[in-house]
Nucleic acid binder design. Sequence first.
DNA 1: GCCAACGTTGGC
DNA 2: GCCAACGTTGGC
Length: 160
Amino acid sequence: MIQRPRFWLMKTEPEVFSFDDLMRAPRQTTCWEGVRNYQARNMMRDDFKIGDEVLVYHSNATPPGVAGVARVVREAYPDPAALDPDSEYFDEKSGAHGESRWVMVDIQAVAPAQKLVSLDVIRNTAGLEDMLLVKRGQRLSIQPVTLAEWQIVCRLCGLA
DNA sequence: GCCAACGTTGGC
DNA sequence: GCCAACGTTGGC
């Protein structure tokens, strides 16, 4: 029996979709389309459950960091963008049988960080040195987070 | 824009 | 199944 809820970190480029965009979305909810990495997909498909909590991380940003907290409100279902030739997330190998091999989940904002928790702060905070985020070369766009790490980051976010 | 690190592809 | 070439990620 796996402990619930579980905790995750999801990367997004704020120029594409920021935490503010999530706050402005209907019901502060969005589908998390465009994940095109098998490891990340498998975590969403197999391990994401309703009620799991998510750190929303801004990558390719100035500075990069955790911008807010969200929760999973819908478990994995097919990502239709993979089948859409007009989408930037189109995957021509996906639709051979009319079915997307990629999935997405829906997340709903819980709260924005009072102040963005930068990667630099995360690097320099005791207890966070094992986060995948700060490991060299770790690029996964979806990462598991431990309860202890979650609590520390939430405190840094002013959301403890 | 650079580039290290990693993932994917495809010829063999 | 190997592995070189290529593409992507993402901090800087």
